[in-house]
Simulated scan of single mutants.
Amino acid sequence: MTAKTAKDRLIDDLKAEGFTAVGVTRADAIPEARDRLHAFLAGGLHGTMAWMAETEARRGDPLVLWPAAKSVVMVAMNYGPEDDPLEALTRRDRVTISAYARNRDYHDIVKGKLKQAAGRFAVKTGADVKVFVDTAPVMEKPLGEAAGIGWQGKHTNLVSRDLGSWFFLGAIFTDMDLPADERESDHCGSCRNCLDICPTDAFPAPYRLDARRCISYLTIEHAGPIPVEFRKPMGNRIYGCDDCLAVCPWNKFAAVASEAKLKAREDLKSPAIIELLGLDDTAFRAKFSGSPIKRIGRDRFIRNVLIAAGNSGDETVAGAVEAHLRDPDATVRGAAVWALGELTDENRFAAAREAHRKQETAETVIGEWDRMSG
């Protein structure tokens, strides 16, 4: 079987598995990625994601990750939402969950399908393969650009002229030398919608992201209290943020997710704050079983919901917020203090402070009481 025939059959197989775009590049096609990654890490823009620095060498060069690799097959799977994610931001009594996280964990879905096709390719060709879906030190976006799937836009995400921005990426590394596709060029032009809409100014310059200011990072990767300056801008976003994707003009070509397990669950489209504040650890695990949200844990999740509660202006949730002043987790208690201060009058807040502060031992929570008390 020729390399071209092997490639063509693999592409057909991957599209039959539900992948909406497939491209091939050489394993040595992104030499510039190493220096860009180093500059990102040296500037501390990765925040507390220490694993990025720990895997810098492998992440920056596919051939360090697997020296035998000759080709990288990049795939995209569409997850376009049915609704406008920006509309949900106006419903302050409810929360907003990033479109990609409203059903099953995409890692499992994409990797499962990718492994099936890669396995069949290996059997037919005798080639060795390795499959990666966002769980190994692979720079999928530069590889996706090199493979012609899209280009890294000013928001640093991959954009496609055919798919817009709503798609997941996966990779098959192989030691078989497959014909490479043409690299995609940048089509952002003068547009800066994604930069201007960011509520936390997380883009110090086009094509440059400061993760420490990104709501996706703050709600998912960041442990401990949310920095005060970002609490109001978070609004009702409790898991991720879609703003910079949602305003991209290229999304006029995007389609709604075709994979059923990537379509939004009704109960996760825009759930009520009061409902989520009532979740204990058992209920949280049950509700988000199989969901990417489960990995942040109940405490971090409730911290995020409490920030949304404080931004809601809805005094009817104050009782549920106040109940979290007795939460076992100090970060949750601190978020409850902030939210209560935003929702209630001085007398109710002072009474709560008197009742709970004298029992408090965590310095961060005491600091919240003092700051909110003026």
Rank of each mutant, 00 (worst) to 15 (best):
T316E: 13
K294N: 08
D61H: 10
G224D: 09
G278W: 01
G126T: 08
D83L: 09
A202N: 03
D186S: 03
A69D: 06
D345G: 15
H38P: 00
R183F: 01
R34A: 13
P206D: 03
D281E: 15
A352W: 01
D327C: 05
M1K: 12
A283N: 08
I293W: 07
K115D: 12
K124W: 02
P137H: 12
T20M: 05
A136M: 10
D134L: 03
V337Y: 14
A255Q: 13
G341S: 11
P328R: 14
E140D: 15
A21V: 03
I220M: 12
A202C: 15
A118K: 09
L45P: 01
E322D: 02
I296N: 01
E82D: 14
K252W: 01
W66Q: 08
D329L: 08
A16S: 15
D84C: 12
R102H: 08
W151T: 01
E315G: 04
K130T: 07
R161T: 14
L276G: 09
C248R: 11
K111Y: 08
E184Y: 02
K124G: 00
I220P: 08
D345K: 10
W166K: 12
A202F: 05
E354P: 00
S289H: 13
L86Q: 11
R92M: 13
G112Q: 07
R303G: 04
A257F: 06
L89R: 15
F173V: 04
T5W: 04
R285F: 00
T361I: 11
T331L: 02
R326E: 12
P85R: 09
S185K: 10
T125W: 04
G374I: 02
Y79A: 05
R91L: 09
M139H: 02
H324F: 00
S216K: 09
L10C: 10
F173R: 02
K294G: 00
C248L: 07
K7Y: 03
S258C: 00
T48Y: 06
R333M: 09
V24Q: 04
F40P: 01
I11W: 02
R265K: 14
R237D: 04
R298G: 10
H222D: 00
A330P: 07
G164H: 09
A171W: 02
I97K: 09
D105P: 04
G313F: 11
W166A: 07
T316G: 01
C188H: 07
D128G: 15
T90Y: 09
H324W: 04
A323D: 13
